[in-house]
Structures are given as structure tokens and as C-alpha cells.
Design a protein around this nucleic acid. Structure first.
Lengths: 389, 389
DNA sequence: ACACACTATGTACGCGCTTACACCACCTGC
DNA sequence: GCAGGTGGTGTAAGCGCGTACATAGTGTGT
């Protein structure tokens, strides 16, 4: 292994000078610089990351905690992972823009294993990004006590850590408004997410609010799923069993996976989507557009979520005295066919904030600049046309 | 920040003893151990990763290089990433089983940016896993000169680095054999992958070998795509344009994305799959099963690929004197409907090695034990039934 | 009673790098 | 001619941890 000392000796300078050349900030005479650079090239010197971290007292690494459904359930749950993959890419992009690195840790929901893992992680990074409800709150608190933590998803004012989340409530409200006002749907069925996931609760709240504002509409029933395709299938079966005689005219699932599962179950029973029952999802994962029928859903800006979380985290690392904040990112309504719209009228429509949530620090965070700047061009900016259902 | 010294002072012992307690390997008296552990708990001590790495002369981190299509093309290419996400999860699982960590680096094909990034990466990890053709060979060679490197994918005997790959040739051969023998297809069209990706070349070779063995069959034409959905659409359009008067009866795409794209293009022109033209893919990415019609394809064991690559890498790190080897993992034929089979007869069938490839070290590597052990239960083990086309 | 083995613990150095500080040579202005 | 810069470079003290080696303490056999 080639070290700084080897380079220094070979170039006839001190280690300090080599270090200065490597980082190019301090003044070094041109002749010395050239000589040192030549030796570096020739010897193939690459600085040791561990030594740099130790010396700088900063590792320039951030940790990302990923959920991992192990073993048997893996295939069934596969799509659940799509969400985190997307977020991670956002984090990855933001991180490498700044020359930092990304350390991944997988947890599988087994506290015996997960806690030591996260604990060890906190000694290897300068900050951690984690999905909401990936680990229990007390564990999170212990970790957050050691290094800055940003939580992705969840209700804005939830915790004493930074939160970056999508505007779940407005998103599902927009979706239900579309079902009611454009397609005249009246009798809804909710496929909810797990009770301990506040994203899921927020989405349900959005539904209820719209229902309350529209006389003549009602919630026929609901089913609590687990965000998996399989639980969507179960939801569909439960729906058929309990309300087979008087089906609702729309199913609102708390995520795309469950919507896809529900469509499959209905389909098998001869109930057609969207003719008999409209079905909508949430998140806008990739396969949703490939589904038959293509899924109408709410786009959650997963990549941006990751980017913002990363930026927020780096900010906290640079200035630890800052108070935790929440940042709520806008969503988009993605109209495809499973709501009853014709395939031709596929559009994406930005969802406006229905109501500003209170922030932990009392301020109301608007959409960050990058939201608009980074949003992909094209369909997103198309105005919503007259939709013929 | 709480250090080893703080713990030692507080517990009234030396740092050596604390270190021994933390790692639990050397003998320490029970009373001392308990006292130290209590102090550790109380102070919330977590060892500093950088210091450990430096001191041990081993970072216990492995690097994974991920491709990242930036900007505009992002949405279109999205599915391309599914492959690496899956592989990465395999690597992640193997890595954390052993208590090591995973450091992710994204490259975007811009050598100016990529090379310094990889160079820096090599100073932060003990070894690197990278997809074939992610970076040019010379760059790879430079990196491999510094730390052990395992390449995922590619022809077995390709390089002076370790390779872990799926049996592309046998896989595509099995697919084409199925099309010919079960469905009586005779006139094929190939949608190839990029010329510099040897996975793609291998698949094409598999097709040709089967064609040669079956008199009366022929290759009507081919199109060179880029592995993206969009290029699959282009392939379909090109096919219609050039062979519209006498369509082939089957399209063999080098990956699922292009197969999906081709189906879309054919569909728009009123050509039905599989009635008019059968279309098959390769890889078995998740959305393929959701496609309309569900895609017949070859399952590439992406997760296992990641696991094996990781194990191989750790082996190389532990014993650097080992020679590079290639490991070829078996594939499975996944029969769904796009080949012409009925939806009910969906099966997965292990693909046997058609011919052993020569290995760099002269040995012929059979499927590793874990291949069979880890393969998910259920459909994979079902015998292939009589298929009615 | 003494040499020896064995266990429990402490001392101190090195891992490779950064950086505060010291130093030297040379220049400027009075 | 000399104080006071200023630019270029070297010296050396850590950063937090692991561990080889030294040491103290406690048996064991003769």
C-alpha cells in the first residue's frame, strides 16, 4: 500500500506538502506541485479513507437504512422495495454531488439484529437517513442522540428529528375529489396501510375530509393491509365477501401495490376495473403504469424526497445547533385509466396544498425551490384537459 | 463524542481492557467485564469506525458501483435500474450477514467524473463489486490493481478479474428451443443488446446455436437496442417497417425492457402478442409478470448473483494470493403467456448447462451449492407439465 | 521455598493523514 | 540597514483504536 510518506520521500518533500498538493487549497510552488503530482501518478497513490476520516474528525459518509424482507415473503413483497430504491437513488445523487459517500444498512424488522446494526452504523457515519416506522421510536431516539437523523415520510410534526415527507393528505384528497367530481363515484372502499405508519393514516385522513365535504358520498367499508400486493388481494377478497351484493363504486388503496392486488382479486371474480369498480393507488411506482388497466395514482416524489433528506442532513451535520424541521413536498395526481378515464387523457397534475400543517418550529415550510426546478419536464407541466369519463 | 478512553477512565481500567470487553474474544474477569459493560451502556459508547479501520488495517467495507441514468432519460430508463437494485440487495444481504458494510457509488458514464470517483472509492473500501461494462476495461484494470474487484455479468473467461455471471447462453437457448419445439415458431427476429455488453452477445449466441440445430428455422432480422424500453419500441417499429409484409412469428429480445417495448410497438400497429407474434425477454424483472400479456422470459438470479459476488470478493480479500475465477450461475425458464402458452400453464423450469465454458483457471465451475439451497421454494420446483399452445 | 505456568490487566506504539505552528528566505518600505 | 511582511515548506502532535509485549498476581509441582 502506497502512503503519503512514500510519496513525500520519493518527491523529496514533507508529508504536509503532499497533503497540500492533494487537496489543492494551500499555496504550493508550481515546480513542487508538478513534481509531487508526478510521483503520485507514478506510484498510484490514493489517500486512505479511514485515516482521512479519523484525522478530519469527519467521515463524509452518510448512512441509509433500508428495509429488507427476507426469505419466503421476499417475492411477494418485492414491489414494496421499489419505493426505497427510488429514494435511495435520490440520496445517492445528492451525496455524490458533494463528494460524500453512502453507506447502506439493511434491517429486517428483527430488533435483536437491527438495533446493534444501527448502533454500529452510528459509529461509521456522520448522519443517518431512515424511513419512517422502519424502526421503533425508542430505538430511533437512541440513534438520533448520537448522530443527526432525518426521517423520510410520516406526519410533519411527528418527532424531535428532521422529517422530509410528501403531502400525503392533499394527495389522497385530490385523488378522491377526482373520483367524485369527474367520475361521479359515491360509495368508496378504503384499503388502508398499517396503523403505525403515519403516511397511511394521513392518506386516510385526506379521504375522509373530502367525503365529509361531499354530501351523498360515503365510506362503504375499509380493510387494513400491509402495503403488499398480497394484502391488496386479501383486501379485494374481503371486499367481495362483505359487500358482494352491493359493491362500492371505487376502491382507494393506500399504495399502488395494494391497488394492484385488489384489481387482481376483483378481476378474478369477474368484477371489471374501472367499469364496475374504479381502483386507485398511491406512490406512482414504476409497474403501476404497466398494470392492466394502467393505475391512476398520486405521484410521490421519491427521488426528490431522497435528495431533500440528504441536503437537510448535511445541513444538520454542518450546523448541529439547528432545530429539527419538517419539510413537506408536493405530490402530483397521475391520471391513467383505472379511475375510469380514457387511456388517451393520461395526465399528471400538481397537487396544491389543501392546508398548511403546523411545523415543529412554528414555520410553515413551502415546497423547496428544487421541487420545481428538478421536476422532470413534459407531462408534468401539461395542463389538465377536459376529461371524458 | 465518547471514546474508549472515557470508558476506560470511568471504569477504572485500561483502554486495552475496554477493547477486550467490546470484542469479547480475550479473557477478562467477569467482574471487570460487567463493570465495563455497564459504563459503556451508561455513556452510550460506540466505537469509531474510522479509527477501527485504521488500526485494524481493514475497513470491513465493500464498494458497490451502480449505474445511474441522470436527468431527462431517467424515466424512460427506469426499469434498467431494477436489475442493479436486485443485485445490490443480494450483495447487501451477504455483506451484513458478515458484519461488513456496503458503500455505494453511482457513476453516470462520464469518464471525467467517474474515474476520480472510483479511484477515491478504492481508498475507502477493501474490495469492489461492479457490473460488467459499467466502466471501460482500462479504468477497471487500474482499479483492480489497487483492490480486489468482482465483475457481475459478462462472458466467463473475459478478464483478469473475478467474474460472477448467469448462464446467458443456455438461458436464451432454452427460450428459443421452447419457441420452436413447443410453439412451432420458425421465423425469428432478435432485439439485441449493446454490442459491448457481453451478456447480450452471449444471449445472441445461444439463439444462433439453436437456430442452427433446427433445420427450417431462420433469423429474419435483428435490431441493436440499448436495453431500454424505448429502444424496444424502436425495435418494434423497425421490425414493422422492414418486415411488415412478412412478419416473423417470434421476437427474441435480449432483456425484458426491450421485450415490453417491442410488444407496445406491435400492439399499437394492431399486431397481437402472442397470437400474431410471440415475444420473449430475458432477466425476469418484476414488472414483466405484470405486463399484458405476462412476459415469458429467462430468470436471471440477480439476488444470488449479488450474494455470490460478495462471497467471492470477501474470499479474495481474505486470501489475495488466489487466482481470479469465473462462476456461472444457472438460469430458469419462466413460461408465462407472451410466448403463446396459456396463462394457466405458467411454470419456472431450471435451465441445464448446454455446454461447459472454459474457465480462466482451467476449471469448470459448477453451480454453487447455494444456488439450489437458496432458490425460493414453490413454483421453481414444479415439474414442467404438458403445455398446450 | 522456588521455578514455572497461566490468567488478568496495563503500557505504549503505530495505523495514515491533517493541520497548527514554526521556520526560513526573500522582499518591501522607511 | 533593519523591522515587518509574505510565500513556501517542514515539524510534530494528535485523531481513536487494536494489540504486542510487559507486568503483576495466583496457583502448581517438586
Amino acid at each position: 500500500m502506497v502512503t503519503l510518506y512514500d510519496v513525500a520521500r520519493e518527491a523529496g518533500v514533507s508529508t504536509a506538502t503532499v497533503s497540500r498538493v492533494v487537496h489543492g487549497q494551500d499555496r504550493v510552488s508550481d515546480s513542487t506541485r508538478l513534481r509531487v503530482m508526478h510521483v503520485i501518478e507514478q506510484l498510484g497513490y490514493v489517500p486512505d479513507g479511514a485515516a482521512q476520516s479519523l484525522s478530519r474528525r469527519r467521515k463524509e459518509i452518510i448512512g441509509f437504512v433500508c428495509v429488507e424482507s427476507h426469505g419466503r415473503q421476499y417475492d411477494v413483497e418485492a414491489m414494496n422495495l421499489l419505493y426505497y430504491d427510488e429514494v435511495m437513488r435520490g440520496v445517492g445523487a445528492a451525496v455524490s454531488d458533494r463528494g460524500w459517500s453512502l453507506l447502506i444498512t439493511y434491517v429486517d424488522g428483527e430488533p435483536e439484529r437491527d438495533f446493534p446494526r444501527l448502533r454500529a452504523l452510528s459509529g461509521k457515519v456522520d448522519g443517518i437517513i431512515i424511513g419512517q416506522s422502519v424502526v421503533p421510536a425508542p430505538v430511533l431516539a437512541q440513534i438520533a442522540d448520537r448522530v443527526p437523523v432525518v426521517v423520510i415520510g410520516g406526519a410533519p410534526a411527528e418527532r424531535a428529528v428532521d422529517v422530509v415527507t410528501a403531502d400525503n393528505r392533499s394527495g389522497s384528497a385530490a385523488l378522491v375529489t377526482h373520483l367524485i367530481e369527474v367520475h361521479g363515484r359515491r360509495r368508496l372502499f378504503c384499503v388502508d396501510g398499517p396503523a403505525d405508519v403515519s403516511d397511511a393514516r394521513e392518506r386516510r385522513t385526506g379521504v375522509e375530509r373530502v367525503l365529509r365535504a361531499h354530501p351523498g358520498t360515503s365510506l362503504v367499508g375499509s380493510y387494513q393491509g400491509k402495503f403488499s400486493v398480497q394484502s391488496g388481494v386479501s383486501a379485494g377478497e374481503s371486499l367481495l365477501e362483505r359487500h358482494g351484493d352491493a359493491l362500492p363504486d371505487a376502491v382507494v388503496a393506500a399504495n399502488d401495490q395494494m391497488a394492484i392486488g385488489a384489481i387482481q382479486a376483483l378481476n378474478r371474480a369477474g368484477v371489471r376495473t374501472p367499469q364496475d369498480v374504479a381502483v386507485v393507488g398511491f406512490d406512482d411506482i414504476y409497474p403501476g403504469g404497466l398494470n392492466d388497466p394502467p393505475l391512476t395514482t398520486v405521484h410521490q416524489p421519491m427521488r426528490l424526497l431522497g435528495e431533500r433528506a440528504c441536503i437537510r442532513l448535511l445541513d444538520r451535520i454542518a450546523r448541529p445547533e439547528l432545530h429539527p424541521r419538517a419539510e413537506v413536498l408536493p405530490t402530483e395526481l397521475v391520471v391513467r385509466s383505472s379511475c375510469g378515464c380514457s387511456p388517451d387523457s393520461a395526465v399528471r397534475q400538481p397537487v396544491k396544498r389543501t392546508r398548511r400543517s403546523r411545523q415543529p418550529d412554528g414555520s410553515a415550510t413551502g415546497p423547496p425551490q428544487t421541487a420545481a426546478r428538478r421536476r422532470s419536464p413534459g407531462p408534468a407541466d401539461v395542463r389538465i384537459p377536459e376529461i371524458v369519463s
